[in-house]
Amino acid sequence: MSQIDTRPPRGRIEVDNFSLSYETIEGPVEAVSNTRIHVNPGEFVSIVGPSGCGKSTLLNAVAGFLKPTTGSVTVDGEAVNGPSAERGMVFQQYSLFPWKTVRANVEFGLKMRGIPSSQRERAARTLLGLAGLEAFEKHYPERLSGGMKQRVGIVRALATGPKVLLLDEPFGALDAQTRVIMQQILTNLWQRLKISVLFVTHDIDEAIFLSDRVYCMTARPGSIKAEIPIPLERPRQQSMMMSSEFLALRRGLMSLIREESLKAMGGEINELAMQGLSIDLHGHSLAEIL
């Protein structure tokens, strides 16, 4: 595993002039339009945006599952051309192989590379140790909690020593407490491995807490609305989420996203209606007032 720890920083993601549209019977529908993002080697970058804005589409294009309609996606100057082990991916649905034990799941990428089994075993054990999962190496995924499953998912993606790690709302299905712990674990792993991370989420707190920079996307067709550097110092503590600096960032991002979410809803709910939602009930139940 030492080659992972001492590797020189690499993994620069560049997405340039990127658009992607789907063919439908009514003609092409643009999901992402004219987008430009980059991730520097070793940087942690998040993409936030209203649901359906194409942030996952963008991530899937970096992973190589989708081809851009126009523009380019490159990693370290090489054009992305289909999925590969150079870009590790973590999915919201965990997507562990149910028929493989935890360790076999982690070993999978190394096995695909033809690495002998004793070496795979050692590597998998080391990584599982980093994620606090040694005791569960022989378990099948079905028996793990959501948080443990996702830790296996992250470690599995890291096992092949990818240049970049792509995460698609990885903690979206977890409860709030587990999510906080998972964020801490991901930060620890990232700092240790010095890997570039592109992280998609709709959780603003999560994006600020984890990232060096946050891209905020517009409603569909998605494009970059703002790029916000997060100057909070590291290592970050959970307590920072109460600091005025954090809250200021949060307020800024919140208002950006809110604008876009309202747009995404097609103007059905305007600002006035939103104000109407904060009805003062004066201690009565809503039914009584109505």
Partner: peptide
Amino acid sequence: VDPVLVRAAQCLGARERSIFREVYFPA
């Protein structure tokens, strides 16, 4: 067969034959 599992295997460097053996068949 869950297509996400196939994609997960691809992201880990699995080629057509390995995906068949390691994903489609056991699934």
